[in-house]
């Protein structure tokens, strides 16, 4: 389990980008050192979530497949913490 990383997926599609994803690209350097090696960050052209109204509001990220809407750096860091520390 120790080697398995959790996957953080960012969406750089138009809607997410203008709604705040432009501020999420620095996330990799902001992740606290104790979690850094446990998270893999991947960018996407578009996660295709904005077209589906059931997912609330952009910007969207996925953390191990789980959708986080209206994502902010703080929200993502909290979710990472929860995921790793349980």
């Amino acid at each position: 389990m120790a080697d398995e990383k959790i996957l953080l997926e960012l969406c750089f599609g138009t809607t997410c980008f203008v709604m705040g994803a432009s501020k999420l690209q620095e996330i990799e350097s902001i992740i606290p050192p104790q979690y850094k090696n446990k998270v893999e960050v991947k960018a996407h052209t578009c996660l295709d979530l904005c077209k589906n109204s059931t997912y609330m509001k952009a910007p969207f990220v996925k953390l191990d497949g789980e959708i986080i809407s209206e994502a902010t750096v703080e929200k993502i860091l909290k979710a990472i913490e929860r995921k790793i520390d349980g």
Binding site: F12, F17, S22, T45, C46, D48
Partner: peptide, 26 residues
């Protein structure tokens, strides 16, 4: 982005996205 996804899907190819934006654009 959506166009890239649909072409990747139809042609069965992988897309990789650069993690850092340059300037004000994705």
């Amino acid at each position: 982005g959506t166009t890239a996804n649909l072409i990747a899907r139809e042609l069965g190819r992988e897309i990789t996205t650069e993690k850092y934006n340059k300037g004000m654009l994705p």
